[in-house]
């Protein structure tokens, strides 16, 4: 008998190993749609034959005095380069294809750059635990429903940088919590965002940001030593979705990773 839970994993593992075409040809570019193409074949070929015969007759009669122009059918969609070819690579793009990350259990998708990967926090770690008054949401494991950390670092480097609760600087930490009846604004309002100076923080900027029509509460917490934590909060039913990253001028980011990279991943979120 086929174990069906196992089958799904086998399907994922095996089919995910099938090769993809170059990203430059994912979108249709130089070809007409099938129906248009059939029309071109049905109408265009006889027409070309008629024109060719007419041309031959004109050539034969000496009427054709102008050189013929070659025309091409315009593209149905413009061809768009997806990366800038580096020099010395024979003009070939070498950037890796972005990966789609799907979380059907908590109904969101993200696109991470090809050089990024998902990593797993060490067992027993709890993200961003704060000893706050009881009015703040309880940030303890029973209320943490899901957590995924994405990084551009190699495994050994990543392990060396992991702290007890937080993913390393320049990683993205996506968490889903039981929101315990509190709104995104309430979740985002604690510690320095509630006017309380603590943990060496210098302040909190709290705003809202709309991503694909959905409004997130965004906080940016700055600290005396330079690290800055940015969090996006979204209420979804009984859950609180949090996307968080921190940048640290004292920690070298992985090659090519900037604040814009992290913001790009956050803004790729699709809610399903």
């Amino acid at each position: 008998m086929l174990p069906e839970i196992g089958i799904e994993r086998v399907f994922q593992r095996e089919l995910d190993s099938l090769p993809l075409p170059d990203e430059g040809i994912w979108l249709p570019t130089r070809r007409a749609r099938p129906s248009s193409l059939a029309m071109v074949a049905l109408v265009g070929v006889p027409l070309l034959l008629v024109l060719a015969v007419a041309g031959l007759i004109r050539d034969a009669s000496g009427a054709a005095t102008q050189p013929r122009r070659v025309t091409s059918t315009p593209s149905s969609l413009p061809s768009r380069p997806t990366c800038t070819p580096p020099s010395g690579m024979n003009g070939r793009c070498v950037s890796l294809v972005p990966n789609a990350v799907r979380n059907p259990a908590f109904a969101y998708n993200l696109t991470i750059p090809g050089e990024w990967r998902e990593t797993r926090m060490p067992a027993g770690t709890e993200p961003f635990v704060r000893d706050g008054p009881s009015a703040v949401p309880s940030l303890t494991a029973p209320f943490l429903l899901d957590r995924h950390v994405f990084t551009a670092r190699a495994a050994q480097e990543w392990v060396a940088l992991t702290t007890v609760n937080m993913a390393p600087a320049w990683d993205l930490d996506v968490q889903v919590w039981d929101r315990q009846g509190r709104t995104a604004l309430e979740w985002a309002t604690f510690g320095p965002c509630n006017g309380v100076r603590s943990y060496g923080t210098t302040g909190c900027v709290q705003t809202t940001e709309t991503i694909h029509g959905t409004t997130f509460v965004k906080t940016t917490i700055s600290t005396l030593l330079g690290p800055q934590t940015t969090s996006y909060y979204l209420e979804r039913g009984d859950q609180m979705l949090i996307l968080r990253y921190w940048i640290d001028p004292n920690v070298a980011p992985p090659p090519g990773v900037t604040t814009a990279t992290l913001e790009g991943i956050v803004h790729s979120i699709g809610l399903v």
Binding site: D16, L18, L20, L27, V97, A100, T111, S268
Partner: peptide, 12 residues
């Protein structure tokens, strides 16, 4: 954007 997101899975 969504097409690009789903391309790999659907193509495979």
């Amino acid at each position: 954007q969504l097409y690009r997101l789903e391309f790999a899975r659907v193509y495979r």
